[in-house]
Design a protein around this nucleic acid. Structure first.
Length: 529
RNA sequence: GCCCCCAUGGUCUAGUGGUUAGGACGCCUGCCUUUCACGCAGGAGAUCGCCGGUUCGAGCCCGGCUGGGGGUACCA
């Protein structure tokens, strides 16, 4: 008998036991559930009567203890969710939304009104040693902290679970659910050319090589997606996935299943790009004889071009949003809206409100386009709701300057992001900006110098130098000169700010004080001549 | 190619058999006004992707089509 025939004979011999084992494994979760239920029933029967009070309204049948309604048994009523980013780049808004939704779930009312607090686990998916970096891990943690999405457990490094992965891998190998295979990409391609494109790759077992998971040739692998409902994939079209490299290091689809299992994750909520990975992971659970978590696949976030949001769509990472001057509370609120509505006619919600109102089943199935303009709008509203002290603190942190309180007070109505502040009000601290065009257009205009000179006199005579008095003085000048308000105010504005954009002119002048204002006006007058 | 998912104004959403299809962003007009904003009052913009079916009646249910998206790695 040649080697090939021997292999085939061996395979055929193993096929039946494997099928039997699989069948048993498939029923194992049920068996487990049954055993746990029975255990709980025992606990229930032994428990004091008041532990499971009669349902409100009472029962209409039976009075003896044994006919009491069976207690609702929910093995997984306490939500354990996770966010598992791979550190191959910064945290982008799609990932941030996934993290947020998981956080909301952990802090929400739970399933069926069970208000036991859930647990939000953070795991770093770093099995890709080529692309994962420490810097990216640090960036992701930093971004999550900034957003206030505090995790309850972790961060768990997937790489740290290597022994357990090896053990589970060996188990699948021993039980015949996985096999070593030396087939490479060309072999897979050749296989499909021979068997048809709809036929998934099935390898020939080798003594060594990468490890592939056996996928059944028939039937479908299906699951109930919390957002999409019944979702199923034909097994025949699936390739036998490689779950470990030839050197023994495990791959994503295997590691996630093991880690979700070990962390007792109840709900896997992740992006739709993982939808077609789910059956592979389900097959791992099945081969292990374990009950898989529930899955929910979030619609993707798209850029304006309708493609999956990525770096090239501009401010796509959380860090970039922070640098663009957005508030974490606004980012959370806006991002949450990309995929679900919390109420028919309201869009502003606190984290607590969102956690209370969020329902996985209500998440949209279709992708959403990230619209920075709307984020800006929401950010502006959040900004204006901050107290003056709070906003000042954030702006001082953002700009790295201090003593900004007065400037913040008179600018807050005019900015939508923290980044808008300095260009508008920086002159109040650092002096006028250089804008020759504005200077020429306003002060260099016909009569500009005369008006500014008159304004200087009016301001010099103003005492005390308050907003009200300054306004009165300048308006008086408008009256007496017969000029339009703008013709008087704009030269003053350009003199003190260097440009035509500034907070309210009277407020700005008052904040600068008389000496500083007059000196700035003098500078402008000199420059104009 | 193959597998899977999706489809309400430009954008995000509400609406699950009977509504003038609601709200928000953006856009336009007016008011306010010292620039820019904010705020206020209005307005334009949707044959609910298309075709067929079920029903007295469909954005909502069913089928097909079209379009879009995701996956198809010894990445995650």
């Amino acid at each position: 008998m040649d080697q090939h025939a021997a292999d085939r004979a061996r395979r055929e011999l193993l096929a039946e036991p494997r099928e039997i084992l699989l069948a048993v494994r498939r029923r194992l979760p049920h068996a487990r559930r049954l055993i746990e239920d029975l255990y709980r029933l025992g606990a229930y029967l032994d428990a004091p009567l008041d532990r499971f009070p009669e349902p409100a309204g009472g029962r209409d049948m039976g009075t003896d203890q044994h006919s009491r309604p069976f207690p609702r048994i929910k093995l997984r009523s306490i939500m354990r969710v996770r966010f598992a980013p791979s550190p191959t780049g910064a945290l982008h808004v799609g990932g941030a939304r996934a993290a947020l939704y998981n956080w909301l779930l952990a802090h929400g009312p739970g399933e069926e009104g069970d208000d036991t607090p859930g647990t939000f686990v953070l795991r770093i998916e770093d099995t890709d040693r080529e692309r994962s970096t420490e810097e990216n891990v640090a960036q992701i943690l930093d971004a999550l902290e900034w957003l206030g999405l505090q995790w309850d457990e972790g961060p768990i490094s997937q790489l740290g679970n290597t022994p357990r992965h090896q053990q589970a891998l060996q188990q699948l190998l021993d039980d015949g659910f996985a096999y070593h295979c030396n087939a490479n990409a060309d072999d897979v391609k050749a296989y499909k050319e021979k068997h048809g494109a709809e036929r998934g790759f099935r390898g020939e077992p080798d003594a060594d090589g990468a490890v592939r998971l056996h996928v059944p040739d028939e039937g479908r692998t299906s699951f109930e997606d919390a957002i999409r409902g019944e979702t199923s994939f034909p097994n025949a079209s699936m390739d036998d996935p490689v779950i470990a490299r030839a050197d023994g290091s495990v791959l994503y689809n295997f590691a996630v299943a093991i880690d979700d299992l070990d962390a007792k994750i109840t709900h896997v909520v992740r992006g739709e790009d993982h939808l077609s990975n789910t059956p592979k992971q389900l097959l791992v659970f099945e081969a292990l004889g374990e009950t898989p978590p529930k899955y929910a696949h979030l619609p993707l976030l798209h850029g304006p071009d309708g493609k999956k949001l990525s770096k090239r769509h501009g401010a796509a990472s959380v860090q970039e949003l922070r640098d663009a001057g957005y508030l974490p509370e606004a980012v959370n609120n806006y991002i949450a809206l990309l995929g679900t509505g919390f109420a028919a006619d309201e869009e502003f919600f606190t984290m607590a409100q969102m956690a209370e109102l969020f329902r996985l089943e209500r998440v949209s199935k279709s992708p959403a386009v990230f619209d920075e303009q709307k984020l800006r709008h929401m950010n502006g509203r959040y900004l204006r709701e901050l107290s003056l002290d709070e906003l000042t603190e954030r702006l001082e942190k953002f700009t790295g300057k201090s003593g900004l309180r007065g400037a913040v007070e008179i600018s807050r109505e005019k900015i939508q992001t923290l980044a808008d502040f300095w260009p508008l009000a920086g002159f109040l601290v650092d002096g006028p900006v250089d804008d020759p065009k504005a200077f020429q257009k306003v002060i260099g205009a016909e009569g500009g110098v005369q008006t500014l000179t008159a304004a200087r006199e009016a301001l010099a005579a103003t005492d005390p130098f308050t907003v009200e008095n300054i306004e009165a003085s300048l308006r008086e000048l408008v009256e007496s000169s017969g000029l339009k308000p703008g013709q008087v105010f704009q030269p003053v504005r350009v003199a003190i700010a260097g440009t035509t954009i500034s907070p309210g002119i009277f407020e700005s002048v008052a904040l600068l004080g008389k000496d500083r204002t007059l000196s700035l006006v003098d500078d402008a007058l000199i420059k104009a001549v």
